[in-house]
Computed example of a mutant assay.
Amino acid sequence: MIRNCFIQYQHDLESVPLSEEDYIRMTAEITEILRTDDASDVFEIVNDVVYEYLSQ
């Protein structure tokens, strides 16, 4: 899902700017949000986390 979000933001599979550490960090952040707010939509959370990453 994370990779697909980057593709929506005009990246292709070769240009997704994430290292393995970035994937782990983003996955942990998404998991923590879901753990604390189980009513949240996974798709929305993933999009929010990816957008935040790109806007840094």
Rank of each mutant, 00 (worst) to 15 (best):
M1C: 09
I2D: 03
I2A: 03
R3T: 12
N4P: 00
N4W: 06
F6D: 00
I7M: 14
I7D: 05
Q8T: 12
Y9Q: 12
Q10D: 15
Q10G: 04
H11C: 03
D12M: 07
D12Q: 09
L13T: 15
L13H: 14
L13E: 15
S15W: 07
V16P: 00
P17E: 02
P17I: 15
P17L: 14
L18W: 00
L18R: 02
S19E: 10
E20C: 12
D22Y: 06
Y23G: 03
Y23M: 09
I24Q: 11
I24C: 11
R25D: 04
T27I: 13
T27G: 13
A28Q: 10
A28W: 06
E29F: 06
E29N: 05
I30R: 01
T31L: 13
T31R: 10
T31P: 01
T31Y: 10
E32C: 12
E32P: 03
E32A: 14
E32R: 12
I33L: 13
D37G: 04
D37L: 07
D37P: 01
D38G: 08
D38L: 07
A39N: 05
S40M: 07
D41K: 08
V42C: 05
V42G: 03
V42E: 08
V42N: 05
F43L: 14
I45H: 02
I45C: 04
V46E: 01
N47L: 07
D48N: 10
D48L: 11
V49R: 02
V49H: 04
V50S: 01
Y51I: 06
E52C: 09
Y53W: 15
Y53Q: 03
L54W: 05
S55P: 01
S55V: 07
Q56W: 09
